[in-house]
Design a protein around this nucleic acid. Structure first.
Lengths: 332, 332
DNA sequence: CAGATTTTTGCAACCGGTTGCAAAGTAAAT
DNA sequence: ATTTACTTTGCAACCGGTTGCAAAAATCTG
């Protein structure tokens, strides 16, 4: 077993409180005492037990990092940014993989058992109610990549997917496309729904367009490719707004495999601007989602909430912008 | 604050031990008592504090998941498999992102403070000494994707990178390539070193070959592309064994951008068989690394070690195999 | 039904820390 | 040298559980 406070105290010939205090900053300890204790601690190789102290302080510095996006490459970056950002602030990410779980109950219970100081729900597909379950259980929560709302029930950090849908629509119209398709991710994902709604509402304002839409089974290469293959069997649209980049790349693959070319035969615009979209052999025109800012802002909010748990729920929405690459024809 | 054992005990009119026992399986409690306690617990919404109990039981069910590979897409799958596998066994992954950290000391200390039951080091670039530091600190550890050794100091699960290098070499020779290059990942990564050693040792047995080698700055698209661009400025080899798939894809991009074609002008073989390698617009010939088995086996080993911490260190090496796709010319 | 055996329960100490409070020690002020 | 004010230290209770042990209750035997 590891060295305990008591052993250090005995070795240094002081009380247990004295040892505790030298390892608590802001506590009252004389220089002489501190040196004595630190020496003993060093000799013994002592390091304080964070969990035992959490019992009395009520703080574990554990943060639940809850996600169901373990298949989309952008989430590797998301995890990278979250773990580094949290670590830099002395917080520890306890990772929860929801896979197909949609019921928050089990995760909430588990995170409460481990007394996490807070939870970050990082998902563009889960509903606001999912995140709310954490709040209701008394766990401070921020929903990253969550659904935009002007009156959120929990802290939300992300983008306005409806506005993104509109932006994509405008850019297709501006390029003179008339037969326009929406090829979304899974239909039950909030991000899909919002992008779809924004896209369609913008296009409704433009008469004479020929609109269509369909949904892929997942945000994945294979789902995008399969759905595009299906669309190619009848007459496809002139241009598609795809649910996200990885879906777009599958679509791209399907199109070129069929002997058609992009953007000559079919135009394509994605969303996310993942690293791969910029690879020269993909070169996807897409809408940039400012991931780094979203993650950092989420962490800031989380940290703020640790001091002020009842902070009024806030939505932090970051603007997106189109990154012009090679999968849409130029503006006429 | 959350409901405590004591409150449940008072409500049920029984002792605290009784409550504790109903939530500890294998403890002696009568049916009547159990029902009484469970009712009270339900009424109050009680769930036991895992960390408080860890104080006496000495088990937290926390497992440190330590990695420095937050840029290689295959690690998203690795994290997915690890988190799910651990969760399924009632264990909780505490994620540690090393980024450029190569000194284990800080991570070891941190994980000890949180009393993790064990640690998984998931990295193909860190040295065996890194993992050993955990063992030396009394933290049961398994090194996944670590360097193969017949006398390992800690449990290692992965592949034999030397053998993979040889396998790649043989396949290039069999296809009649004579001017052959090794284009590795970062030179200080153990996986790079081993693949290089195996590759070269095999080729040395074949006289009359023209060998070359170089190393990319990282296992990344951009590093691969940049290094290939450089090689293309003088006379490139006929075929390359690339450090890994994501590197290969960058190399592929550089080649086609230069107006050359694969495998007509230059052949390419990667390593990992990541999902992307199978995408029809990439179609990379590569060596398959059985990630799922490696992760599952690592978890099994970890679980075994929880009961038997002094288990003799074991190396579990899984065979790799070539996946033939479209970036090498056919065997002559 | 008494006695022996087994099961269930509560007491109290413990896990590794923290912290309010009062006593002891130091330094400053008179 | 006293008094006053402030700092440092230790005591003891507490955080939320677990567990060995012995007493109490239930069950089994003959």
């Amino acid at each position: 077993m590891a060295i305990t406070l008591k052993e250090v105290a005995e070795r240094a010939g002081v009380s247990r409180s004295a040892v505790s205090r030298t390892f608590t900053d802001g506590a009252s300890v004389s220089e002489k005492m501190r040196r004595k204790v630190e020496k003993a601690a060093r000799d013994l190789g002592y390091s304080p037990n964070a969990l035992a102290s959490s019992l009395t302080t009520g703080r574990t510095k554990l943060i639940g990092l809850v996600s169901n996006n373990f298949h989309n490459p952008i989430f590797l970056q998301v995890f990278d940014l979250f773990t580094r950002g949290l670590q830099d602030r002395g917080l520890r990410p306890l990772l929860v993989n929801l896979s197909d779980e949609t019921d928050p109950e089990a995760s909430v219970r588990m995170l409460r058992q481990y007394s996490v100081d807070g939870a970050v729900v990082a998902s563009s597909t889960l509903s606001p109610e999912f995140a709310k379950a954490f709040r209701d259980a008394g766990v401070p929560v921020v929903h990253s990549f969550g659904r935009h709302s002007s009156t959120p029930q929990v802290h939300v950090v992300g983008i306005d997917n409806v506005a993104c849908g509109r932006m994509a629509a405008r850019s297709l119209v501006a390029r003179g496309y008339r037969r326009i398709g929406f090829l979304g991710g899974p239909q039950n994902a909030t991000s899909t729904q919002d992008r779809f709604a924004g896209f369609m509402s913008e296009l409704e304002g433009h008469p004479g367009l020929d609109l269509s839409h369909s949904f892929a089974a997942a945000y994945s290469f294979n789902a995008g490719r399969a759905e595009m293959m299906r669309l190619l069997r009848s007459e496809p649209a002139e241009a598609y707004f795809c649910g996200d980049d990885v879906l777009s790349i599958g679509v791209l693959s399907a199109i070129t495999e069929s002997g058609l070319s992009v953007p000559h035969d079919i135009g394509l615009i994605g969303l996310n601007d993942m690293e791969m979209a910029g690879w020269q052999n993909i070169n996807l025109t897409t809408i940039h989602q400012p991931i780094r800012q979203i993650v950092n802002s989420s962490i800031e909010l989380m940290v703020a909430m640790l001091d002020e748990p009842d902070r009024y729920p806030e939505a932090r929405i970051f603007p997106c912008s189109i990154v012009e690459r090679g999968t849409l024809r130029p503006v006429t």
